[in-house]
Every structure is written in C-alpha cells, then in structure tokens.
Design a protein around this nucleic acid. Structure first.
Lengths: 231, 231
DNA sequence: AGCCGAAGAATTGTATACAGTCAATTGGGG
DNA sequence: CCCCAATTGACTGTATACAATTCTTCGGCT
C-alpha cells in the first residue's frame, strides 16, 4: 500500500499555523495589541479552534502573544524595558558569537554570508520592507548557526523575533541600508580575523538598531485578520 | 458583586499541570525516554487529554519533552552535544551576570543569597537530593534575578532546567557540597567587589558541574507515572 | 442626560467523540 | 522453527459539543 503523502506532518500542522501567525506578528502586519480570536483564525486556516489554541499557546511561550485568561489572545506589547533587556541580552550573546566566528569562520561560510548580504541589498533596493527586515534579522541567526552552538542559535532566533516585535521596526530604507552596511563591515572584520574589531562593530551595530526603534505607537485596534495573515 | 474565588487560574491550570510534569522531569523522577501517555496523565490530574496535550506542547517547546508525531510524548533525551552546548551557553550568560552582580550587588541581595546558601547546606545535610538539586540550580537563577534583566533571567532559568535534565544529576552528596562551597566562594568574591575573580569562579564552577555530569544511562522504560508525579 | 443594572450575544475553557496512525500479536506459509 | 503478513488493539490527531465567563446592548432609574 502506498503512503505517498506520508501524511501531512502530524503536530507540525500546528507549527505551520503558528509560523503563519508568527510571521504576521514579526513583520508587523499584526500590530501589538491586536486581538487574535480563535474562531476567526480557525476559519482563516480551515481548522478547528483546538489547533489554533495550541498554536497560540506556543506563540505565547515565545512571548509573541499574550494570553489573557478568559479574555483571549492578543499580540504582545513589549514595553521599553523589555526592549532594552532584549537588546542587552542580544549584545551579551552576539558579542561572543561574532568573536568566535571571527576566530573560526571558513571561506565557505563567509561566502555564504556575503551571498546573504546580497539578498539584503536586493530587498532594500526593491523596497520590500517585510523581506528586508526578515533578512536583516536572519543575518544574525545565520552567524549563530555557523558558529555551531544549536542551543545558542535557537535562543538568539527567539530574541531576534522578539526584538522585531518590540521595535515597531518602521525602519526607514535609509537606516536599513545602514544596517546592511554594518553587516558588510562585520564580514570584513571577520575576513581580517579581527575579533576585537568585530566585537566592537557588533556592539555598535546593535546599539544603532536599538536606537532606531520607536516604541509604542498605534494600538492594534480594528484590523482585518485575514488580510494580515493571508500572504 | 464578589468574586472572592477570582476563579481558579484560567489557562494557568494548564501551567500547573506542566509544572508538575516539569518538576518530575527536572528532578529525574521521570527519566529521559519515559513515555508520557496522554490518557494516563489525564487520569492522574483528573483532567481531559485536551489539557494534558496543551501542557505537553509547552514542555516540548522548553525542550524538556519530545513530541513524536502520532507516537506520543517522551521525556527528552539530551545527548552529549546538547549538554555541552547548554553549559557553553550558560557560561556565556552567567559570566556576564556574575560580573554585573559583583559590580552592583546590594547588601540586602547578598544577605538574601547567603540565606539561600543556608538552605542549600541544610538540604545537603538532610540528604534531600531533590530539594538540594533544585536549590543548587535556583542559586544561579537568583543571581540573574538580582541583576535585573528579566529576559536573561527567563532564558537562564530554562537553561538551568535543561541542564538538570541533561545531566543525570546523580550528583553525589560530596560533589553537591562542593557545589555549595563554590557558591559560597562566589558570594565572597562579590562581597569583595572582585568582578574578575567572580567571573573566574563562575567559569570554574560551571566547568565542575559539567564535568560531574554522567550522560546517558538508564533508558526510561517501565515506570509508574503516578508515583513519579504525585509528590 | 448620565449612570447603573440586567438580559442576550459572543468568546473562551474544557470534555467528549470520532477518525487516523502506529505497535503488537496471532495465524499461516516456507 | 523462523519469518512474514494481516488483524486487533491502543493511542494520538482533530473536530465538535457543552459549560462558564466576559463583553455588549438595552432598559430603567436618579
């Protein structure tokens, strides 16, 4: 007997739903405070509330949504303090990462990173802000992956996502381009095996990104869930 | 109108269940690989599978249990690599934490920490291994809390839990006592405002803990779930 | 007109029911 | 006697149904 469709991923359809919502949150298509009704989401994805609920629980644990008892799920609203703490934590981790990367980066890794940089530039040039912001974040996760500590990589990935939510990343194309330039400088420093310089650049880079964040702003009211999620 | 019983926590009854299982996992009452059947757990807690499932999803995201598609939930079995990465990550974070703590610890914080140390010693003397291991871990989280970065604290808490699972923490009373002594040395260094010494001590301490871990071992078969969870 | 209160609607919390998948066991054949 | 295949059993995956709570709206009172 065939099982060609080895049956769609089991618990991973839940992850697929979580991923869709997560992307919408991280890309600011769903603003902080937006209501995430279970039935509404269920209709959008064509599944029951059970599955939606499970996805929301996951996202709540990632601190991307806030579950309010008997009130419902809302996109999380990180405050200024949390934003500061997020970037502080990132600095701690990423300083070490870039230092190690400078010490051990292979030629292939650097070239792969440069390729990623190209993608960033392309997205910036094309004015695709969603893709641009995603790529700017993934740059950092990529370095973590290359360094090779899976645990640290997973943590950083979560931190980067939360950072994106915390900063109403309405980064101007100009500051995005600036970010990308700093990424390039980082690569150069690593190429020179300049660990100290790389660490300094990473510190400055994260400080710049943090400075550009404009917290708070629009309260997530009145919103078309379907439009925000349907990519 | 009264709402004296503000109604038992809403989504937090799920968290209560997760906590019970989590404690059992972290304290090694449930060995890595142990099957966590949904119906069995539901009967133990007197709830339906729905709630158990939600709790298991949370624990899976904390990497304490492994969800296998259509196969069920099992206590996670971190391998040697993951254990190394966990301690590596802890070193990165805790070095910074102890450094900052040495720079800014208040008298009250130090006294509170010394009080905790007393509890550790008491548990060790009493031969209460479960409490002992819990306290030894909480020492590190406590320092994080005192330093004040909530994000970093949460991450460290998770790392500590995972460390406990990864190491088949059958720490001998002797090495536990050793751990506690190193905690005391850390407090002393902070008291002297010796940041450099404190960092060194933390590094050594984590290295010692990591060295004491004996990975693998018994495969979690044949086990009385109820006995393991009912405290 | 404004505020308080109550009934109704909508949404969340939880359990149960059913369908699908995997593991085990039994029966037959080599 | 061993090995393979099909049926049976147990458990997970998902949806639906019901109960409880909250929000809303409408009516009445001050």
């Amino acid at each position: 007997m065939r099982k060609l469709p080895p049956h769609t991923s089991p618990t991973s359809s839940t992850e697929a739903i979580a991923a869709r919502i997560r992307d919408a949150v991280v890309e600011h298509r769903l603003p902080p405070g937006a209501k995430l009704g279970e039935v509404a989401l269920g209709e959008i994805f064509g599944v029951s509330r059970t599955k939606v609920r499970q996805a929301l629980i996951r996202l709540a644990q990632e601190k991307l949504v806030s579950l309010q008892p008997a009130r419902g799920a809302y996109v999380a609203k990180p405050d200024a303090r949390e934003a500061r703490e997020l970037f502080d934590t990132r600095r701690v981790i990423e300083r070490v990462l870039i230092e190690r990367f400078a010490a051990g980066a292979t030629r292939e890794q650097l070239s792969s990173l440069r390729q990623h940089l190209q993608c960033e530039r392309q997205a910036i040039a094309a004015g695709d802000t969603a893709l641009r912001n995603r790529l700017l974040g993934e740059f950092h996760v990529l370095i973590a992956q290359m360094v090779g500590n899976q645990v640290m990589t997973d943590m950083l990935r979560e931190l980067v996502r939360r950072s994106s939510l915390a900063t109403l990343l309405v980064q101007t194309p100009r500051s995005a381009s600036c970010s990308s330039d700093e990424h390039a400088s980082l690569i150069d420093a690593v190429l020179r095996r300049d660990a100290i310089g790389a660490v300094r650049l990473m510190d400055e880079h994260l400080a710049h990104v943090e400075r550009d964040l404009k917290l708070s702003g629009l309260d997530g009211e009145a919103l078309d869930l379907r439009a925000a999620i349907k990519v």
